[in-house]
């Protein structure tokens, strides 16, 4: 049982994590590097003359981007471990787990780990003003936990009460509010900040859908293999 969870999660997490890392390097990293030019003060907007929106950015950095690839794969493997473990529980309750249903699992995972906390704690470019990191981490963790329970209730609750509890769990963190900075001090143009948030969400959703599909596929094929061996 545990080896089936572990094998499926490792395959799915490594594959989806690698794709996520490559997509991030192409679509997110240039926006982040552009923001860092303003964070470091190398570029200043509203300083008088107009600043080009297309400065020369540092290229691929083997050490920095290599570490990003490794850590993205690790992060998605962590997500996959949690998701495949829950998939095995759902299957025991009689729900089909395969690549097709995995797509929905992936969307639910994206909402849980990325979109729900990001709705009030928007993906940050470097240099933005933000509340104390420890406080934000507490809010982030509580929001992810609430959203995860809500997703399970929506998928498997099957009655009005569980849908209402799910709605309350999804709304509460945002009604309470995420920790906010005392004042704004971000030097990065809003255009860059908005593009960064949009790209982070878009790539996150693509990667999560792939993660769910892969996890469903590997879970099913590992189960078939285990049955054939038995």
């Amino acid at each position: 049982m545990f080896s089936r969870i572990l094998t499926s999660a490792l395959f799915a997490g490594a594959a989806a994590g690698l794709i996520a890392a490559l997509l991030q390097l192409v679509f997110v990293q240039p926006v982040l590097l552009h923001a860092e030019l303003y964070e470091s003060g190398e570029l200043v907007h509203f300083g008088g003359e107009a600043i080009s929106a297309h400065p020369e950015l540092p290229g691929f950095n083997a050490m920095r981007d290599g570490l990003s690839i490794v850590f993205t794969m690790l992060t998605y493997t962590g997500y996959a471990l949690v998701m495949v473990a829950l998939m095995s529980m759902a299957e025991r309750q009689g729900h089909a787990v395969n690549a097709r249903s995995g797509l929905l699992w992936g969307l639910a995972g994206f909402i849980t780990f990325h979109f729900a906390p990001g709705l009030s704690l928007a993906p940050e470019v470097p240099g933005v003003a933000a509340a104390d990191v420890a406080v934000r981490q507490i809010w982030w963790t509580a929001t992810v936990a609430a959203a995860g329970i809500a997703m399970w209730l929506i998928a498997f609750g099957g009655n009005l009460v569980s849908y209402l509890i799910a709605a309350a769990l999804l709304l509460a963190p945002h009604l309470i509010g995420a920790p906010e900075p005392d004042s704004f001090s971000g030097p990065v143009p809003t255009e860059i900040g908005a593009l960064f948030a949009a790209r982070a969400f878009g790539i996150g959703m693509a990667a999560w859908v792939l993660l769910g599909t892969f996890a469903g596929y590997f879970w099913q094929s590992e189960s078939a293999r285990a049955e054939a061996a038995a």
Partner: peptide, 10 residues
Amino acid sequence: DVRHATGFPC
């Protein structure tokens, strides 16, 4: 970079 791109508080 991963924390920023994946929406973790950094």
